[in-house]
C-alpha cells in the first residue's frame, strides 16, 4: 500500500525500540509463533502446550483449526 507523508517528523532515539531489535524476553512478552498444528491435538491443546513450553502466563491462537469445524 502507498504511503502519504502528512508531516515531516523525527523520532527520539531515547524512547522505544525498533521491533527487529527486541531481545528474546521482549519477544516472549509480545510475539507470535507461526505454528504448524500437528494432527491429533486440538488447537486449544496445542496452545496450552506452547504456553507451558515457553513458561508463559498467557497465550492464545488466532482462529481454531478443528476437524468438526474445519474452519475458523
Amino acid at each position: 500500500m502507498k504511503w502519504f507523508v502528512v508531516r515531516e517528523s523525527e523520532t527520539d532515539e531515547r524512547y522505544g525500540k525498533c521491533p527487529e531489535d527486541r531481545g528474546l524476553n521482549e519477544l516472549l512478552r509480545f510475539g507470535v509463533v507461526n505454528l504448524d498444528k500437528p494432527p491429533g491435538p486440538t488447537s486449544h491443546e496445542v496452545v496450552a502446550w506452547v504456553k507451558n513450553l515457553l513458561g508463559l502466563s498467557k497465550a492464545g491462537h488466532g482462529g481454531t483449526l478443528e476437524p468438526c469445524n474445519g474452519a475458523g
Binding site: 519477544l27 512478552r29 509463533v33 488447537s43 496452545v47 497465550a59 492464545g60 488466532g62 483449526l65
Partner: peptide, 30 residues
C-alpha cells in the same frame, strides 16, 4: 473417523493475545 487437520495456527504470546481478534476475521486458505 476424524479427518486429519493440520497447518497454520498462529499462537500469540502474552500481550499479543490482545490482537487475536484481528486475525480471526482474516481470509483463510486451505
Amino acid at each position: 473417523g476424524n479427518p486429519k487437520v493440520t497447518g497454520v495456527l498462529p499462537v500469540a504470546l502474552e500481550d499479543a493475545v490482545k490482537l487475536i481478534g484481528y486475525l480471526m476475521l482474516s481470509t483463510k486458505e486451505y
